[in-house]
């Protein structure tokens, strides 16, 4: 199943930004099938190329978003990914209604993982997801509440 994609031309009043214009992409991330995880990131990469964004910024956004998308599928049964492209930065917001992160400090440690064994056998769950997302972006904010969900906001400047 392909992720739902819509292109929204947002103006500054809608985004709360002082930038004049932005382009926004929204994806529903299907959490029921690990095989399809990453479709939204692949599509974002294509969209950013079409917009003429610098290659290194595309690479950083793609990797950070892909890690986030994988996390949403493993831990939170999917969610929503929104990517907004401004004149000089890209903002990625990943929202889910999953179990929340009990200990952010631990979750940010390289090698710490709560992913089940079957995910490790698929090549993930090495405890590199969140640290990697932070590494590849210029800013990352985690809002999480146990039993309610998690929203991660990442910024990549270019």
């Amino acid at each position: 199943m392909r992720p739902a994609v819509c292109f929204i031309k947002a103006d500054s009043s809608e985004t709360g930004s002082d930038m004049s214009d932005s382009v926004k992409f929204r994806f529903d991330v299907d959490g029921s099938n690990f095989t399809t995880a990453g479709q939204a990131s692949v599509q974002v990469k294509k969209n950013l190329r079409e917009l003429g964004i610098p290659a290194e910024a595309i690479r950083r956004v793609s990797i950070a978003m892909y890690e986030g998308e994988i996390n949403m599928v493993i831990h939170a049964h999917g969610g929503v990914a929104e990517v907004e492209v401004f004149e000089d930065k890209i903002v990625i917001v990943l929202s889910d209604t999953g179990p929340g992160i009990p200990n952010i400090e631990l979750a940010m440690k390289e090698g710490y993982s709560t992913a089940p064994d079957n995910i490790r056998s698929l090549g993930f769950g090495a405890g590199m997801g969140l640290p990697n997302m932070k590494r590849y972006t210029d800013g990352m904010k985690i809002d999480t509440e146990l039993g309610k969900g998690t929203t991660i906001t990442m910024v990549v400047n270019f």
Partner: peptide
């Protein structure tokens, strides 16, 4: 030696 769709996506993400 891993065979699943995420191998392809990972390679694509890494250019």
């Amino acid at each position: 030696g891993l065979v699943n769709s995420q191998v392809i996506r990972t390679a694509e993400m890494m250019d």
